[in-house]
Simulated assay, not measured.
Amino acid sequence: MLHPRTHLTADDLRAVADLEERVVAHDGGRLKIEWDSLRARSADPGGGPTTDLLWTAPDGRGVGYVGFDSWDGRTVELVGMVDPAERGRGTGTVLLDAAVQVCRDRGFAQALLIVPRPSEAGHRLARRLGAPLEHSEHALRLDAPPAAGDEDPRTTLRTATAEDLDVLADLLADAFGHPPTHLAASFAEGDTVAVEHEGAVVGTLRRPRDGASGGIYGFAVAPMFQGRGIGRDVLRRVSREFFADGATSVRLEVAVDNDRALGLYTSVGFRRVQTEDYYDLPL
């Protein structure tokens, strides 16, 4: 039975977590479920738009799930899963059709379905809807503190403030080809970092913490300062700080065609755990 949710109960969270565990045990890799967002939705009283779709079996077990995450109100990312024992019965088709309707009802301009590269069923569902491949990313993980390396005293890290907004926005636009849409809002979380070299802001990243896992996102160094070891130095520092604070892993994502960044991350010790394809669902 399909259950649209505007609020996740404690039982819902357990059902999604149990389902994720079964799916990953069967398929390997990982699923890009934003658990910090799910827990925030659990604290929300609900009553707003649909944020999750949960499919339960007659015995109450969660056997299908789709979650919706948007950081700018325009583009939404969808991550879904179906219990391996329930596949081939049309559950995924019903979930995805319902998810597309939710995206239309909520007025999103773009919906990106995240499909793990090995998931043939996920790719078939995307193709059935005529969804083109928008881009692909490698999911990387670091499971131990990085080896010690040179630390340049001229490079410092500090929490970004509103006064950094313009320079960081320019850095991110240069790095990713489009201006950031949620940078100002991210400052409120306190996890956006300004990287300074000899007193000038030359880079930025976000370092959110989700339980036992740290994350590094939106990592950019100004082009004229690349190739000087600043990026590697910053990666080592941030990763070591996570592990010193009790994290058991650090995760990040990189576009599959960004060989330079991939080489940097793997040189620090990150390894690929999954490749994910992002399909642009027709709305």
Rank of each mutant, 00 (worst) to 15 (best):
L172F: 01
G227A: 11
R206S: 11
I216A: 03
D170A: 13
G227Q: 13
D174G: 05
L235E: 14
D233M: 10
P223C: 07
F219V: 12
A188W: 00
A220T: 09
F219N: 06
V221A: 09
L183N: 08
G190K: 12
G211M: 05
T192A: 06
A184N: 03
D191C: 09
E198S: 14
R206M: 07
V193A: 02
G229S: 05
G177C: 03
L205C: 13
R236T: 15
D210Y: 10
S239M: 08
V238N: 03
A220D: 03
E196H: 12
P208T: 10
F176H: 01
A212I: 10
F176T: 02
G190I: 12
P223D: 13
A188Y: 00
G203S: 08
A194V: 10
T192N: 03
S213N: 08
H178W: 02
S239L: 09
I216E: 11
Y217H: 14
A184W: 02
G199Y: 15
L235Q: 12
F176C: 03
R207K: 11
S213Q: 14
H197N: 05
S239C: 15
L235D: 06
E198R: 15
R236I: 12
G203Y: 04
G229N: 05
A200P: 01
L171Q: 03
F187G: 05
H197Y: 13
P180T: 08
I230A: 07
H182V: 02
L183Q: 11
A222Y: 00
S186Q: 15
S239Y: 03
R207P: 00
F176A: 04
E196V: 12
G199D: 04
D170H: 06
F219T: 10
G227I: 09
V195R: 09
L171K: 03
F187Q: 02
S213P: 00
E189F: 13
S213Y: 06
